[in-house]
């Protein structure tokens, strides 16, 4: 088989779409790339402080609009997902939520790895959603709704 045969390239991020781990993997990458872009913008924005009070105040006023606040909400949601899924990956890597694969020995037993991954994923989703609800009030205040 050739080196590149069987490779899906970037499509491999999406297919098979029904695979939960693949979906989480893709979302993890997309949020990671998005957060990296935001990081550079945030560094640039923060660096405005070096130019003194006037520049900093002008920057703060420029950022003071619903569009940027909504963007910030998306960034926080992306960070929450990325963080919760990242913790799941670390726990999985350490073998704390799913045993490391071993050679099957007869009589074969049903492997519960998938169920454990599901349970941990649901736990992480609840954790992430809990923090998101907690953060929502802040954004409702920023958006002028509360």
């Amino acid at each position: 088989m050739g080196e590149k045969e069987g490779r899906r390239g970037i499509l491999g991020w999406i297919f098979p779409i029904t695979n939960l781990e693949r979906l989480l993997y893709t979302l993890h990458r997309i949020t990671g790339i998005g957060l990296t872009l935001y990081l550079f913008i945030h560094i640039y924005e923060t660096s405005m402080r070096m130019y003194g009070y006037e520049t900093w105040t002008a920057t703060a006023e420029f950022l003071e609009n619903p569009l940027f606040h909504f963007g910030l909400l998306l960034v926080v949601l992306a960070a929450l997902f990325h963080g919760a899924n990242g913790i799941r990956l670390i726990l999985q890597e350490l073998g704390l939520i799913a045993p490391k694969p071993t050679q099957p020995v007869y009589p074969y037993r049903k492997y519960h790895r998938d169920r454990k991954i599901w349970m941990t994923t649901i736990l992480m989703l609840i954790l992430g959603a809990g923090v998101a609800v907690f953060a929502l009030r802040d954004f409702l205040i920023l958006l002028g709704v509360m």
């Binding site: 550079f40 560094i43 640039y44 660096s47 402080r49 070096m50």
Partner: peptide, 9 residues
Amino acid sequence: IAFVYGVLP
């Protein structure tokens, strides 16, 4: 560059 730009402020 990002590190230097981030550390300066």
